[in-house]
Design a protein around this nucleic acid. Structure first.
Lengths: 182, 182
DNA sequence: CTAAAAATATTTAAGCTTAAAACATTTTTC
DNA sequence: GAAAAATGTTTTAAGCTTAAATATTTTTAG
């Protein structure tokens, strides 16, 4: 039903009808796409959560923090973590706290700046993460298998661009704000 | 850097090198895609949350429930809502409770089945939702604007297929379980 | 018909999440 | 060098979220 009008494709003088390029139609398609993005990521996240729980007694947020730390062996500040995971600052405090309790990460003071906390994986955290990461890798590979190989790269870039576009907007806003101040 | 090897495309006997089809590379690309899916949806959700809060003093989960109810004018059961939103049953209980407190939805008993609760939008809920939906529609349109029009439909289908693939797996498992029982 | 199983919804405990406020420290400004 | 601004983190209150346990009702199997 949403695909009707395809027949009028190459018929002359159909601008008024032209359903595919119609602004309202495009808007509705974007909305539908968004709902599908949401549902699909939610679906995958639900699957991952269940598996982390049953196989490792672990949670997704804790895995995400550990993955960030793994990619930053010299340690990360709380702010760095929060930006990297795109969650609030206070959120990270709680998750790191629990990881400290479990002996998976250490939180130490910065050498010169006493405001700053540096978080690193402990050796146990590293080994625990490695096990989980291997499984996680396999799960993602399985869950994303239906996506044609030839499209993976393109899709990744598309999503990246989507975020970048917003970031540019953000910069514009910040510049505008700064200008107002001057 | 991740795009090297493209040159070897049509050179004879390069199977050993052929980096693009390499199984490990594909796995890593899938992982990268997943991380990008997650970050992009999270980014958009964060934006929507902020705007719902500042413009309507509303939350995303409550909007989602109302949107589901809007699409089902005859009302929905709690289970139907929970399945539609892909969140847990108990979760819906709390959100609906708050919506009832705000006078935006009603929860009534089912005619014949006394276990079942039927949730519907109140007139006020309908009018509140309509206002929010219009803005929401515009926001999504703005945030997804960088996606080429020609790809929206295809992308939507791709994501749909991704979910459907898992659902089929699920059915297989259920059938297996049933078989064991017999 | 009735006991067992299944379905519907809520409650509970624990954890995740946010925005805003509070706090601590460092840097900048005058 | 003190006041102000900025930076880094935690705390707080409210809400979201899940899995598991519970309560109630309906359906099913015998």
């Amino acid at each position: 039903m949403t695909q009707n009008g395809a027949k009028t494709q190459s018929i002359g003088s159909v601008k008024k009808i032209a359903p595919k390029g119609d602004a309202e139609t495009v808007q509705k398609m974007r909305l539908r796409l968004w709902i599908n993005m949401l549902r699909t990521t939610r679906h995958i996240e639900n699957t991952l959560r269940e598996r982390f729980k049953s196989d490792f007694e672990a949670t997704l947020p804790r895995f995400d923090v550990m993955a960030s730390l793994f990619r930053n062996p010299d340690g990360m500040t709380m702010t760095h973590l929060s930006e990297s995971l795109m969650v609030s600052n206070g959120n990270v405090t709680g998750i790191v706290e629990r990881l400290v309790d479990e002996g998976l990460v250490n939180r130490t003071a910065h050498d010169t700046d006493r405001r700053t906390a540096i978080v690193v994986l402990t050796p146990e955290g590293l080994s625990t993460f490695s096990e989980m990461a291997e499984e996680h890798h396999a799960w993602i590979n399985e869950l994303l298998e239906p996506i044609p190989q030839g499209e993976i790269q393109h899709l990744t870039e598309l999503l990246q661009e989507l975020r970048d576009a917003q970031t540019v907007e953000l910069h514009k806003t910040r510049q505008a704000k700064r200008k107002k101040k001057d």
